[in-house]
């Protein structure tokens, strides 16, 4: 078992951290373009019983 998995990461976290490091260590003229690919806007809401989970806990 690899060290990063023991630390509770999965492969996605692991490779994302590696990719982030790689982007940061690029030459300045390439870095600007690469950093644009680094962001993410998705918001994830867990649902339960047909309602968003955080609303349910708030109702109780």
């Amino acid at each position: 078992m690899s060290a990063w998995r023991q630390a509770g990461l999965n492969y996605i976290n692991y490779s994302n951290i590696a990719a982030k490091m790689l982007r940061r260590s690029l030459k300045p003229e390439l870095r600007a373009e690469a950093l644009k690919r680094d962001d993410s806007n998705v918001r994830i809401t867990p649902w339960a019983n047909g309602r968003p989970a955080h609303l349910q806990t708030a109702a109780k």
Binding site: V42, R43, I44, T45, P46, W47, N49, G50, R51, P52
Partner: peptide, 9 residues
């Protein structure tokens, strides 16, 4: 609605 596990927007 009961089948929805999570929603990404």
């Amino acid at each position: 609605g009961k089948h929805i596990l999570s929603v990404c927007n």
